[in-house]
Amino acid sequence: MKTPKFLIAAAVGVVLTLAGQHTFAQGIDSTAKKVGHKTASIAVKGASAITDKIYKGKEGPSGETVYIDKKDRKYIVDEKGKKIYLKKSQIHDKKKD
């Protein structure tokens, strides 16, 4: 008994569709993570600007804004919204452009 060609074609089509949806779902997950990280970073930077002081004339290792908390600790906010506390050697004067 031979399997009709349209059944084989339909089976291949279903497999490819499911594989494509899995790849598409992974793209949605990574995009959602990126959006979440950016949102967290903006929220933490906004809260830090209100509750803590901005270290005027200074910047972090890669040109980030440096904040000073209530305990006089200096920190930057990374791209995921996490506070990274700095040593004195990591803070330098802002570059004039």
Rank of each mutant, 00 (worst) to 15 (best):
Q90E: 15
T31E: 11
E64R: 05
G81P: 03
A25R: 10
T39D: 08
K88W: 10
K95T: 14
A25G: 07
D72H: 03
K38S: 06
K58R: 15
E59T: 09
I76L: 06
A19M: 13
A43Q: 12
K70T: 08
K45C: 07
A40H: 00
V14D: 09
Y85D: 00
G63H: 11
F24A: 15
T65V: 13
V77I: 09
K34P: 00
E64G: 00
D52G: 03
G57F: 10
E64P: 06
T51Q: 15
D72T: 00
D52K: 03
K94T: 15
Y75K: 01
G63K: 08
K45L: 08
Y85Q: 01
I50F: 12
T23M: 12
A43F: 10
Y75Q: 00
Y55L: 11
L16R: 02
E64N: 06
E59A: 10
Y85A: 01
K87N: 10
I76W: 05
D69Y: 03
A43C: 08
I76P: 04
S41Q: 04
E59R: 08
I54F: 04
G27V: 01
G36K: 02
V66T: 00
T23E: 13
K34W: 04
A11C: 13
V35H: 01
S89Q: 08
S41V: 01
I42G: 05
K38Q: 13
G20W: 10
A47E: 11
K94G: 14
K58L: 09
G46V: 03
K70Y: 06
I42A: 12
